[in-house]
Design a protein around this nucleic acid. Structure first.
Lengths: 351, 351
DNA sequence: CCAGGTGACTAATACGTAACGACTGCGGGC
DNA sequence: GCCCGCAGTCGTTACGTATTAGTCACCTGG
């Protein structure tokens, strides 16, 4: 790693010489604290020298003294950084940026880390140290990385709920339990008795929470445990015509889908159902436990939206609370989702 | 600015103690340079200690020693940061991010600086020092800031061509001259003799370049200097029906529009022309010297597109060349634009 | 006249790293 | 037998800052 080029820039020592004071006094003037015991005359001379020489404080030296550097890191476990608007995670980035700016922090995007494909602890180990603290993102997390970070005491906030054995971590996440339970109760009220939950096969906490809400809602609505079905999908390819018609033949009248980021599963389900002659919602009610495929002229999917921008903002707020010493980790926050009333569920027709 | 919290992390000294060597040797092992004279046995012991204690190099200390920290800054003179997809500058951000990631640099967004509304030299003066070098962006530049940065020898690349008196700066910019000249020649070939250039009233270099191309193209096509008109627009409100009909009455058959970021001028022109009964292109040919308003079912504006993502990439490449010592500033690059063949210009009808 | 206090300033130090120059064996050339 | 060069290692220093523990002159009340 080469030396930095260009002319050296002035230091506090040079300011001090020009103003005829000591370096310590320059530092005092710069820190501008209320009770700083420095005479008006001295302060003026120092500030004049700063002006003349164009002095700028050296952030590296500050950081080495253990000061914070007013920088929040953003790291994603996904393979690309969510600057592209089509990315599922893009709204989180927007929220994080907004709130960081509002609170006077710069935002460091750890773009190099994921290309190195070694995760947080790449190369020189723990690239995140360039920031005061970090917002972490993405579905394909490395649990080891999270555990290590927590053990090291590095300040970070994860977006999404995750349980790590032996370490409690700070996170802000959407509340999937409540709206899922509400949807099940609504379906029950519409006459549905046999309901299927189609989970992502990654077995992550968001899926667990949806299943928890699924069972809570069913219990509250008095559905029989035997009529609660749970299946898994590894992606669009897992949804075939025989599978969908099989559900209907089996007496299932409603399917709750845990969406993937790209919603390929959801799109596939819609296409396959149409091709197989299964009408939505007449033959099968379908709802998404999260972001649904884009609405069309005739179809608005019943679902709920994750307030992604707001979650990004909240993550930064939490992190800054940690950094500025007001709170102790873990700090955890659940954010309510927003119901989307669609036309993809309906009252069940008895035959 | 408060002290950083949390437990201290291990240093090279502690690694050294555990491995039974000196701190200098640890540093040698870590630098991993080809000709590093350290025995295999020692290297192994040191690496074991690093593993055991979970050592991570301290970026602040490195930076203080004058090393680069593999971080590229991005600063915008606009009031908001272009994370929002609707922002004119968003594609630049995408390109910058891509290339930074590819070259192994992290990307530091100076979001706090613009809220402080004091520019580059806010607060502690020159926030950009947190990065090795910086990509600068935005139309509403501060010429003082640019001049100061150049004088200080801070490595940066501006996106867009700018001339600063007494300082040559590095930039990458779209070539407005060539495509503008080509458009004028095309119009002349279609029989146009009296052509108007409608400039943004900020008088910045992009406008100058367009006017240069305007005159070059006219000369090449043999148009009379008296038939070259130049007017200015301060925004959508400046475009009234009387102004547009005035052009036509004055014998103008074609208008070249320098677009603003939000293209409000262009949209206004289209609406006003239609309301005033001036048909495009039959009564008046219109072309945009840059990004045009969005196309509709019946209208594709003749214009040329700025390859914004590619420009973002190129800016990072230039900057990294500067940082890694291969080149000396100023480094300047013009990127060709992409013609958009529309239906908003046509052969002039003699009456 | 002195103890104690206060306001204004400074010397010294620590932060963790990279690099330079020195030091030690040791084998080889003369 | 002596010196040279080399591989391998270490001691020391510098980077620029914030802070601690002073120093010093001057004042104030007794």
């Amino acid at each position: 790693m080469p030396k930095r080029v260009g002319p050296r820039r002035p230091t506090q020592v040079e300011i001090a010489q020009r103003a005829g004071v000591s370096q310590a006094t320059v530092s005092l003037v710069l820190s501008e604290r209320d009770g700083a015991p420095v005479s008006e005359e001295t302060r003026r001379r120092v500030q004049q020298a700063i002006e003349d020489l164009g002095y700028a404080v050296n952030p590296a030296a500050r950081a080495l003294r253990g000061m914070t550097v007013k920088t929040i890191g953003l790291y994603t476990f996904e393979s690309v950084f969510p600057v592209d608007q089509r990315d599922f995670y893009h709204p989180f980035l927007v929220g994080v940026e907004e709130e960081a700016a509002r609170l006077g922090y710069d935002l460091l995007l750890f773009t190099s880390a994921n290309t190195a494909q070694r995760g947080v602890y790449a190369k020189g180990r723990n690239a995140l140290l360039k920031s005061d603290g970090c917002v972490l993102l993405g579905r394909h997390i490395s649990r080891d990385d999270l555990a290590n970070l927590a053990k090291e005491g590095f300040p970070f906030v994860f977006i999404g709920r995750r349980d790590i054995e032996g370490a409690e971590l700070s996170y802000v996440a959407p509340d999937y339990v409540a709206p899922t339970a509400a949807l099940v109760e609504e379906l029950a009220a519409l006459g549905h008795r046999r309901v299927l939950l189609l989970r992502q096969s990654d077995g992550a906490e968001p899926g667990e929470d949806r299943e928890l809400g699924f069972r809570q809602g069913a219990r509250a609505a008095g559905l029989a445990p035997d009529d609660l079905l749970v299946e898994y999908s590894g992606g669009a390819g897992d949804i075939g015509a025989d599978r969908v018609t099989g559900w209907v033949r089996d007496g299932v009248t409603a399917v709750l889908v845990e969406p993937s980021e790209d919603n390929a599963t959801g799109v596939a389900l819609a296409e396959v159902a149409e091709a197989a002659g299964v009408r939505i919602p007449d033959d099968l009610s379908v709802a998404f436990l999260g972001s649904a495929p884009a609405p069309t002229a005739t179809r608005i999917w019943t679902s709920f939206e994750i307030p992604r921008v707001e979650i990004g903002r909240a993550a930064v707020r939490l992190l800054v609370n940690l950094l500025e010493g007001a709170e102790e980790p873990p700090l955890q926050l659940l954010v309510p989702c927003i119901d989307v009333r669609g036309n993809s569920i309906s009252r069940v027709v008895r035959r």
